[in-house]
């Protein structure tokens, strides 16, 4: 699709006007604070807008001798636009949507919130030290046909909005649009190469590799990386309240020992080694084997926040060397 152009001001005023309906991720805000309004509602991670750290699924109440179950229905108004970076958008479109919005059994809470929201992807002018999106099928200019795409270009925004979701009346400039495309293509050629073909299959064959033990050593098995990862979708269902209360849908993480602990006290993933392996394998082998996309979008957030500098990129590159040996 050929893109068009809008002025910074057009985008700025549009967002100002739609303020209550536009949410922006903290990372996008930090990156583009000079071009976008500063008072937009922000979220730490894109996923939390649809899949919040905790939410009530239903209420149960003992009335007389019978239990009454009432589903929680949200009435509050919900945003219509989410402004985010390419990797964050890929995480929603190709990971969390895939997990939650299955046709047979959609997660209703997620689906209801997600359906009404258009993603506005703002491409990256600068690649951060922790970014490695090009390794996993993403890029600083990653676009998606159902989403709007913006990219700052010589005083304007380059805009792809085939369905005209943002009533912006952009102007055309085929020559300039061509220049943008060329720039994207040329820049992508300079980025680190994608992981080798069939890496998910190859990694799967290295389930028993002794390297896992060594790699897992310094990870403290907290939930920081998985909670802030834009793709991690694991959750728990638990209850809160005795005679009346709520059934909760809360974030959970494969890094916690209790995640897989059986009542018999048997645990299929008893130590850090198995849990770290699960995290890496899930993102780089199991998820792509099932759903064709990587379960990691290379955003680098986990690398940045890990308290002990456990680095998934480094580990994956180590595994690439190992499988190619």
């Amino acid at each position: 699709m050929k893109g068009k152009f809008v002025t910074h001001e057009q985008v700025f005023t549009w967002m100002e006007r739609e303020r209550g309906l536009v949410v922006i991720t903290e990372r996008a805000q930090k990156k583009y604070h000079h071009l976008l309004p500063s008072h937009l509602i922000t979220v730490k991670t894109a996923k939390e807008l649809f899949f919040s750290p905790w939410e009530a699924v239903y209420r149960y109440t003992l009335q007389g001798k019978t239990w009454v179950i009432e589903e929680k229905v949200e009435h509050s108004s919900f945003p219509s636009f989410l402004v985010l970076l390419p990797c964050e958008a890929k995480a929603i479109l190709e990971v969390t949507d895939v997990n939650f919005m299955t046709e047979d059994t959609p997660d209703l809470g997620y689906a209801r919130r997600r359906r009404g929201v258009t993603l506005i992807i703002v491409g990256c002018e600068r690649i951060e030290q922790t970014c490695f999106c090009s390794l996993v099928g993403c890029s600083p200019f990653w676009r998606h046909r159902e989403s709007v795409f913006l990219f700052p270009w010589k005083g304007h925004f380059y805009l792809e909005d085939g369905e005209e979701k943002l009533s912006l009346s952009p102007f055309e400039d085929p020559q300039k649009a061509q220049a943008v495309e060329t720039f994207f293509a040329e820049t992508i050629c300079t980025l680190p190469l994608p992981l080798p073909a069939n890496f998910p299959e190859k990694l799967y064959a290295h389930f028993d590799d002794p390297l896992w033990q060594k790699m897992a050593w310094h990870c403290v098995n907290c939930g920081a990386c998985t909670y802030l990862c834009p793709t991690c979708y694991c959750f728990d269902l638990s209850v809160d309240g005795k005679l009346r209360g709520l059934t909760l849908h809360t974030w959970d993480s494969c890094m916690f020992p209790k995640f897989t602990l059986h009542a018999s006290s048997h645990n299929p993933r008893p130590t850090g080694k198995e849990r770290v392996r699960q995290r890496v394998m899930h993102k780089f082998s199991y998820f792509p084997l099932r759903n064709k996309y990587y379960g990691c979008v290379g955003c680098g957030v986990c690398r940045e926040i890990c308290p002990v500098n456990w680095d998934i990129k480094e580990v994956v590159e180590g595994m690439v060397r190992q499988v190619e040996r």
Binding site: C222, Y227, P307
Partner: peptide, 10 residues
């Protein structure tokens, strides 16, 4: 706080 327990585990 999102109760990631990074504080506790560190």
């Amino acid at each position: 706080c999102i109760r990631c327990y990074a504080c506790r585990n560190s």
